Simulated scan of single mutants.
Amino acid sequence: MEDARNEIIKELEHLRDMGIIAEEELEALVEKLKSSIETDILDAEMLIHLEAAKAKANLEIDALELVGAITPEQAEAYREEVKAATKPSEVAAVMAKISVHRDFKALNDAIEKAKLKDQHNYMPNSWTSFEIALRHAEEVSETEHSAKPATQIEINDAFDHLLLAELKLERVASTKAIDHLQDAIRVAHSKKEKDYTKESWADMQTVLGEAEAMLAKLDGNVDAFTEKEVNDMTRKLNLAMLSMKRVDGIGGIINPIKPHTPTKPASKPAAASASAPSASASAPKAAASSLPKTGEVTHSLMSAGLLALGMAGYFYMSRKRLEVSGDIYH
């Protein structure tokens, strides 16, 4: 039991070193462990922290791949190691390998890449956070050739903060996104109320009002909404239109299969001459001796019946698939 507790404490220390838990949280967990008879509860908590450690490791791998500090092949290999880890110490070992790539060169590359971004393309709040992280990274980078260069921990911190701020940048609505929203609004206005059920028309009009309000705010103020918000509104309006139900049943509702109306039978052929019996009339007599026995007839009839049922089922299902896909309307 004591060995198990000591092992858990070591794993908790790895979590602290990775920044997953604070020093105070570590001390509280250790005290809890010492007073506990069983370690099951702490093991369960450890699994939660393990997932957090994996998430952080994967974020750093993504960041290094993004700036070209590691190749896609290296990144994939690191991700597989993280995925296979069963305890925090194993994740920490992978992160130790990763930290080798986070040197001044990687930091400088990240800074140069960050400087290429255009402020006008991003929302003001996210850009402010990004600028702060960029300035801090530049300050750390400037120490490279000084008498007291930044430590590995300081480089890691500057690198992580810059990449995280970059990942959190929110793009303002682009002209393309706004055009797509305008197109959707134009299509919505082309619909005619008389063609749709009252409820579905009202639902679409509600979404249309939201879309038009967004478009009005975007006029001359592209940073009123993010690119994602505009795209989401376009999708919402398109979905509302697709969900509309026509009064004639076309659109949101697929018509049920209508009963088949039999066609008028063809006129009967002229009666055959009594003095000239047809060949078909005499055929059964001529072939009587070649007919199968009763059991064989029954078996043949059953086989033919099953075949007919199978073919009917096939054509019925084919028809249903066409109706569901919208290729057939009645």
Rank of each mutant, 00 (worst) to 15 (best):
E11D: 10
R16F: 10
M18C: 00
G19C: 01
E23M: 13
E23Y: 10
L26C: 13
A28V: 04
E31T: 13
E31Y: 09
L33S: 09
S35K: 12
E38I: 13
D40N: 12
L50F: 06
A52I: 00
K54W: 00
K56V: 00
K56T: 00
I61Y: 06
I70M: 05
A75L: 06
E81G: 11
A85E: 03
S89M: 08
V91K: 05
A92H: 11
I98S: 00
S99G: 09
V100I: 08
D103K: 05
K105V: 13
A114T: 04
Q119G: 11
T128D: 15
F130W: 12
I132L: 14
L134P: 04
R135W: 13
A137G: 10
E138K: 15
E139Y: 15
A147R: 13
Q152T: 11
E154N: 02
E154T: 02
D157L: 10
A158E: 12
H161D: 15
S174P: 06
T175A: 14
A177H: 11
D183N: 00
E193P: 12
D195V: 04
T197G: 14
W201N: 03
L218G: 10
L218M: 09
L218S: 07
D219A: 15
A224F: 06
T226Y: 02
M233H: 07
T234Y: 00
L237D: 07
A240M: 05
L242D: 15
R246P: 06
R246E: 08
G252C: 02
I257T: 04
P259L: 11
P259G: 07
T263G: 01
K264V: 05
K264R: 07
S267I: 14
K268P: 01
S282Y: 03
S282G: 03
S282V: 03
S282K: 04
A283F: 13
S290V: 02
L291H: 01
K293M: 10
E296I: 02
L301D: 11
L306D: 11
Y316P: 02
E323N: 07
V324Q: 07
V324R: 08
S325M: 11
S325Y: 05
G326A: 08
D327P: 08
